[in-house]
Nucleic acid binder design. Sequence first.
DNA 1: GTCTATAAGACGATAGAC
DNA 2: GTCTATCGTCTTATAGAC
Lengths: 207, 207
Amino acid sequence: MARTAGSIGTETAKRVLKEALSLFAHHGYAAVSTRQIAKACGLQVGALYNHFPTKQSILHGLMSAHMQDLLEALAGSNFSNDPAGALEVFTRFHIRYHIDKPEEVFIAYMELRNLEPEPYSEVMKLRQQYERTLRGILRDGQAAGVFKIDDVPVTAMSIISMMTGVNTWYRYGGRLSASEIEEIYVNLVLSVVGLGKTATPKLEEIA
Amino acid sequence: MARTAGSIGTETAKRVLKEALSLFAHHGYAAVSTRQIAKACGLQVGALYNHFPTKQSILHGLMSAHMQDLLEALAGSNFSNDPAGALEVFTRFHIRYHIDKPEEVFIAYMELRNLEPEPYSEVMKLRQQYERTLRGILRDGQAAGVFKIDDVPVTAMSIISMMTGVNTWYRYGGRLSASEIEEIYVNLVLSVVGLGKTATPKLEEIA
DNA sequence: GTCTATAAGACGATAGAC
DNA sequence: GTCTATCGTCTTATAGAC
């Protein structure tokens, strides 16, 4: 049965999605064959088509589910009323989510161009909803006079790019723990809107 | 003849690279066939192989040439001695280059995983050389006490991600001109290291 | 240096047995 | 729901005429 985005899916369908996620993240959608996906699941090719009508629908299922998870998790975050607090919550949320689900995040960005027009615009709408949340926080802080921002849309995209970039270099077991990285990024993002703490490690220069 | 990175190449070889660049940027390396490339050049498939031994070598040629151009252009930039000035020059250079050559930049990032091991490590070395330049500037500014930085490597990657992100949203003829964008990013990047100008457009709050 | 023709196999997707 | 077998097409790359 074709899996519509958000539906539950059988155990086999879930396994297909899981293996396809890993394969797409490593080699790219276009470079992965349905035979490879089937093999990773311990199936023959034909069996895939009991769960998904096309290869494209597997990609769509992955990306759509990811964006919905992301937005639900964001909606479940506890945003404070002051803009600086809200921006900090947003940053912690984004970094944690991106460190926890690197493959989903990677695909959601890299494989956009391999989506057919209809799935593409659906996924893009969800992306824009996420970006709109950050723009709202920035505008609030700008209106309240606590953020120093030249251009809200550019700053929003810059902050998202900066944060998402964590996935280009972070690897589990590296020099920094996830929570150390989270702290660094909170400082970086607050600095972008003019609220950086005095971050120099040693403060004896005051003397 | 196989084109080794950095060689001049015939007119036809250049046209192949130009068309492949555009096709790879739009659809991805794996999704583009040699027939498509040939057609875009007004050739038949077989003719491609007079200029490139494999499809892979076209990708390698593009990425290698791009990274070398980037590093040469960077080396030609006039860096000032004070760290803040150097960071500003680096930022202006990066934004201008990325706005001028969006396809090259896009491929250099997106198609890394489609490079075979040897070309991959060659291109990665050039990337790391570029990143090292920025880390050097940040360390100088930190040592001089003019930058406020928690972690130099993370900050360097964050700044590069932030700047490179311009290619995810900038389109020619949009709301902002290239030089307006450049100014905004200079402010954003300097803010990250604790040197943001008071960027609020209206300053009457001083009264 | 480009052409046509083709090798040798992989591709997404389907049909029908079980 | 998974299997085997297959359809029709497309793939990278090569051979040989011109």
